[in-house]
Design a protein around this nucleic acid. Structure first.
Lengths: 225, 225
DNA sequence: GATGTGCGAGAGCGGTGCTCTCGTTCGAGA
DNA sequence: TCTCGAACGAGAGCACCGCTCTCGCACATC
């Protein structure tokens, strides 16, 4: 049972992260100021250091929360009963929708890394959630016989064992070519969203929604869906 | 003929940008400090404002230079006499090599936008150079009959006229499907490089060089090369 | 009830972007 | 050739930043 002190500490911690999240959404990670967060929660800046040893640790908290929120959105959008292509497209749409709704969070997760900041190991499980969802679609499709037959060969020098396991594991319909294409589709999803969000499609793509659907459908076909 | 004052002004301006470029390469855009640049060139910080009205304007200069440098690298890597797939792969490799050699510049160009900063119109021509090279490969391939026949249809609600013109223009082998795939391949190139550079492939891709070549080859096949 | 730990407040350090003022110097027009 | 205005560098200063340290106060434990 938590003491009163522990309870108020937990409450204050989440109050700080909430304020930080609000400020992140407003001004972005680079302009996120620990002092402003402190002001918003009615603290003096030095008091915040009782809860987060540095601004980077506060950012780490936001990064993990962001990955988790995005991962949950992707998982919620996936209907395991649907056909592979529909599942793929649905998850891609969910990721894009989350990115458009949380542009600064997305930039924090998938944009330039914060300088002098290296992601601690804590972020890894949360960061992997979207990939796990997409890998599950691939594996389910293979086991359902929805993918063309392939050599099933394994080249461990290209894709790591852990990632190969996430990408449907060993199956005759999955070889290194499929694994590479799945990774390519995964990174292309984020490349597409990043280009849209960071303005590189301005003047090129007229209808973002339709372009995205067509591009993601092309990627699904590349994998074999 | 430039006066002595104009000459020394131009010289000092390039001295400032050189120092800024060095600092960008070392500490990244977010940590680039106008005061440190001033120190490096032996000025007091306020004097730099005679040459750049703000830190963002200095960054804009670096962005344009970066796009130009990257664009020149892409153009130099393209051999118009080669086959489309080889040209595509060669340009992709050049972009990746430039990114790996200039990670902070790359992050400035294709990572999170600087907060409160909107790219001025000056950056557009420089930013377009890589896309023009890739579009040229597509157009040459179409005119050489190296692409499968298609409907040649045009759907201006999806891709802008200017971009369609860059992507080989009107040709029976180029329809909106090809244009979408070309844009997808373009953004996927950067998605792949960004994932590698920003650490999202850590633990997944074992051999970055081979993975990149195979992924880019898959993209070429998607376009029709 | 005494004691020690957790906590918030405040001052302070060195850094940042940016502004303003003040002499100086240079260059073009009279 | 002289003059006067524009350009320039230096310096002080403002408000902000991340972070550290110290100092009291309050709470939980012995």
């Amino acid at each position: 049972m938590p003491t009163a002190r522990e309870r108020v500490r937990a409450e204050l911690t989440s109050e700080i992260t909430d304020a930080a999240r609000r400020q992140l959404a407003e001004v972005g990670a680079a302009a996120l100021s620990l002092r402003a967060v402190a002001r918003e929660v009615g603290m003096v800046s030095s008091a915040v250091y009782r809860y987060f040893p540095s601004r980077d640790d506060l950012l780490t908290r936001l990064i993990i929360d962001g990955y988790d929120d995005l991962g949950a959105a992707a998982e919620a959008a996936d209907d395991p009963a649907a056909a592979p292509r529909g599942r793929w497209l649905s998850v891609c749409r969910a990721v894009r929708a989350w990115a458009l709704a949380h542009p600064h969070e997305y930039a924090l997760l998938y944009g330039s890394p914060v300088p002098g900041y290296t992601a601690p190991q804590d972020t890894v499980p949360a960061a992997a959630r979207v990939g796990v969802v997409l890998g599950g679609i691939l594996g389910d499709a293979a086991r359902a016989g929805a993918l063309p037959e392939r050599s099933g060969e394994r080249d461990a020098t290209l894709v790591s064992d852990a990632t190969a396991a996430v990408l449907g594991g060993e199956h005759p319909a999955i070889d290194e070519t499929v694994r590479v294409r799945a990774l390519l589709a995964w990174s292309s999803l984020y490349g597409t969203i990043s280009f849209e969000l960071f303005g590189h499609f301005v003047g090129s793509v007229e209808d973002g929604d339709r372009y995205f659907d067509r591009a993601m459908t092309d990627l699904a076909a590349l994998i074999g869906f």
